[in-house]
Amino acid sequence: MSHSVTIEFDGSSHSVPEGITVIQAMWHLGRPMIHGVGCLGGVCGACTITMRSSSQTESQTALACQTMVEDSMALTFLPPDASKKVMTPLSADVADEKKMIHFYPETRRCVACQACTTICPQGIDVMEGVRAAINGEISAVAEKFTSCVMCGLCSMVCDARIRPHRVGIYARRLSVAAHPGSADQLFTRIDEINTGKYTEEWERVMSS
């Protein structure tokens, strides 16, 4: 009952059922996947592919577990993120907004080419995030990268060798260190526990 489509992969054409994802198509073709597969739910960034459909002249990137096969689709799995991470301590000192790109100074080299934004499978405006990082707007960067799955494609295509996804996660972590906020209810609760407010009630509960 199900129809099949033809995909081009690994140097030849293959017929696979319609309505399945690219990862499922790999299984269908007898390939046990170890690399290039992870959560199967679109959040781990392991299964990046580049693909082109017959109606397009340009290729685009996607997550293989989130992409349905289409007839005449040509695709290739991309290597996983191998960008180097620098140690990024979170002390109050580095939480100074001006020093935000202290550990990623190359971020200033952004030439606003948009390649990172174009390639992001999560639809993040990566370049805006990078610009905000250059301007020291920690919270804005943090917000931009909320849905980042750390696939690293933005770093792969950056001519200036910027690592936007690493800058993003660093800004996110830093934004908490820079603006710890007054989570007073939490701190009060910790005090209450430490000063034994619940001890008696616990004794009652645990012995009942």
Binding site: A142, R173, L174, S175, V176, P180, G181, S182, A183
Partner: peptide, 17 residues
């Protein structure tokens, strides 16, 4: 508290809680 210390961004209310 430890998670805040290592930089986990939880959603906050206006007052910081």
């Amino acid at each position: 508290k430890w998670l805040l210390d290592i930089g986990v961004l939880f959603d906050r209310e206006e007052d910081g809680n």
